[in-house]
Amino acid sequence: MLGSAAVAIGLDVHKRFVIHQFKQRQLGCAQTDAMLRKASQGRGLFLRFSGQFRGTWKNFPCGAYYRAVYLLYPLPVLVGEPSQLINPHDGAEQIRQAANFDPDGAWLLRHGVPRELSYCYSDSGNITVTMQAAAPAPAPQ
């Protein structure tokens, strides 16, 4: 019994205070959160993911979308059409397919997501992040 407790406590101490596993994850989350808040500026957000996220970044689009929805709620966050189904077991694939969806400024404004945050994954493994505000479509002449 004492051995079990020693193993359990030792593992937890190692994770928390030696390899700082939780601290690293918190820092990662904090960076993502700061990016999302900066991009949103208190308004709805459209997320774009381009490139083939792979390796350790394979689930990044999923994680970023779920995090954005939670962090910014009740502000709307979209990756595609509002009717785009993103369910638990196919979410990653559904978000990847939504990358083909390219709405214009008018659509974004109409759906309450006037701010855009784009993540572009390059073949070299870098992720480029851009933020912009949706521009309304020019008035017909």
Binding site: C62, V69, Y73, P74, G80, E81, S83, I86, N87
Partner: peptide, 24 residues
Amino acid sequence: KVLAVHALHPRPAYFDNVSLSYSH
């Protein structure tokens, strides 16, 4: 957050939003 912002009656839009279906 949904429950804190909206009462369950009338039903919040969250429960019909399939783009949030990943949250069960």
